[in-house]
Design a protein around this nucleic acid. Structure first.
Lengths: 338, 338
DNA sequence: CCATTCCATTAAAACGTGTTAGCGGAATTT
DNA sequence: AAATTCCGCTAACACGTTTTAATGGAATGG
């Protein structure tokens, strides 16, 4: 009961199991008439191919793994949506893992993915160790890094220029006239945070100014709205507000914005504010938020295409490190002070 | 090369393949000394169990499927996070599908999940047809409905009381003194929208008022911030603003809020506003948004526990239809007019 | 000391599919 | 008409694991 196998389909269609398999996987090998009979038998019996048996015999599966750092962050949600859309269109299933920033959890996820013999893995790694994925690749599991540059030429990666984005945001604040800028960011162990900070510094230098005078970097332990609000409270307690804040993340920016507004600080009048990621909600916030837009959805699409190309055409595949350019979106929070 | 099998591990440890399998799955059957040898061999060779072979032989996998309606909606993201967390803790992998509201896509997802022989499926179905999942259950794939009530006692479901939530929101507006209320919602083909609308109506009746006088229902084709802003523009064009708006969704509410504020309408002074879902961003919006909180993360957790219990203890398992109660969260957007 | 029980281990048979080599017959060429 | 090529199909094995029945040896009881 329950499971109907390829054998029963064969019997019903009056052919051998091998022919049914061919009709499914290499239809051009089987005569139109028999193919029709097989398809009818499949429909009548409600046959569904046993993916595990198929994987076992064929040596590869129709699934890919996706390991992200924070499924709660809309940026990663957008990436995930792009991945799911592309993979699904090509008949691949996506196994989702949320590392939540924990290296241990990430390792556990990768182990599960290895057990499932996924065709490949898309991952936003929590650390910088490039050797960590070698074990996977030795097993024939391709790896594409998402939002993290590959260190070596034999690996694909898809990123957005973080230094460029940081520079863009900071230049915008400088052009606006701000000369005391705070860069509110997350743990500097996170590469994206480091990049954006570097970009900020570079923008100050490019303007012929001394970072020591102009730029103060404040790193919070988390990149959440909650952390942003805490940062606001600290700034207010310290007494001396910066003229502008560049947040490494829209969530931080939204929290900071809320904290400042609650205390009666005017934005952008007293403090200008720019975030990063341009998530959907920035436009709807108290003061609409200027931000650096990243093509998250597209990132997911391209990463998936790269991965599946690497899987399906291992010999012709050329490893690529693709870097998208972010885009400055100016809204009210850095508008001219009224 | 690459794949190291149970056989090689057995050879290295000087035992038979069967013993290695036992050491992995039923350690109590093998003597401590040999178990130690086996574990060492596994470590040395970097052996990873072939999940497909295991599934094929054992007849069931360690994966569950999750099919949601809109991965971009923070409510579902929270659910997904709860699911991933719980499943992962129990050693299960989660295959993610995004139906994007399309029935056809949902069917395709379910087919993929059936092929993968997932242990069970968590689904937020796009329609009301209860028979649609029978085919899955015949194949031994358990189904738990998420955010959708089960019609039959032999099926688990986890929901949040939508009528109650709708009533709660509307009563709150009525108590506040509003007598011309607009209910802004999405397609009424969506069950959640219907429920909330019913709740709104019931609240009006419970207050001894006539819905025809008090309540106007406006259904948008989508439940996005964009749609909310369009709704605001229409209201303004129509000239006559309601005293209060109950939105079936925070995204709609945020969009509406933005549209109203841009036109100089005061919230809650001219129009009071309440949303639904209480997503993270409501607190950070222009005017912080009153909303109906749903325990999304918990929903995901419980649904997963129910599903895995049904899988692991099919005889003792009691099907349950769990309904959570939502919670009113009052913020500025329904505060007393200044 | 023999019979019994118990324990740790093994050999071998599945699970459902993909694939390879080969077979018979029809179509084509000599 | 015989020889060759081609086409559509089949038989049978392999993939890596789990599981059942069987095995041998140690421990226990009479």
């Amino acid at each position: 009961m329950g499971t109907v196998t390829i054998k029963e389909v064969a019997q019903r269609a009056g052919v051998s199991p091998g022919t049914v398999s061919n009709a499914l996987n290499r239809p051009e090998l089987v005569a139109p008439a028999t193919r029709e009979r097989v398809e009818e038998a499949i429909r009548e019996l409600g046959f569904v191919r046993h993916g595990s048996a198929s994987t076992l015999r064929a040596g590869h599966s129709r699934t890919i793994g996706l390991s992200v750092m924070d499924i709660g962050n809309p940026f990663f949600t957008d990436v995930a949506a792009g991945v799911e859309e592309t993979a699904s269109a090509l008949g691949y299933a996506v196994i989702l893992g949320n590392s939540a920033g924990s290296l241990e959890k990430e390792e556990r996820n990768l182990h599960v993915l290895a057990e499932q013999r996924v065709r490949g893995v898309l991952i936003t790694p929590s650390d910088d160790d490039p050797a960590r994925f070698d074990r996977l690749r030795e097993r024939g599991i391709s790896v594409v890094l998402v939002d993290h540059p590959a260190h070596r030429p034999d690996q694909c990666s898809v990123t957005v220029n973080g230094e460029g984005g940081g520079q863009m945001a900071t230049s915008h604040l400088l052009e606006r006239g701000s000369r005391r800028i705070c860069h509110l960011t997350g743990p500097l162990t996170i590469r994206q945070c480091r990049e954006r900070a570097t970009g900020a510094r570079r923008a100050v230098l490019a303007a012929g100014l001394d970072p020591a005078d102009v730029l103060e970097v404040v790193a919070m332990p988390a990149m959440t709205a909650r952390a942003g609000q805490v940062a606001a409270e600290r700034m207010l307690a310290a007494g001396r507000l910066p003229e502008a804040v560049f947040c490494a993340n829209d969530l931080l920016a939204l929290g900071l914005l809320r904290g400042l507004l609650l205390a009666g600080v005017r934005v952008p009048g007293d403090v200008a504010l720019i975030g990063y990621d341009d998530i959907d909600f920035t436009a709807a916030s108290a003061v609409s938020l200027s931000s650096i837009r990243q093509p998250a959805h597209r990132l997911g699409q391209i990463a998936t295409e790269l991965l599946l190309d690497e899987c399906d055409n291992p010999d012709t595949h050329a490893h690529r490190q693709i870097m998208f350019q972010p885009e400055l979106v100016v809204r009210e929070s850095t508008g001219s002070p009224r």
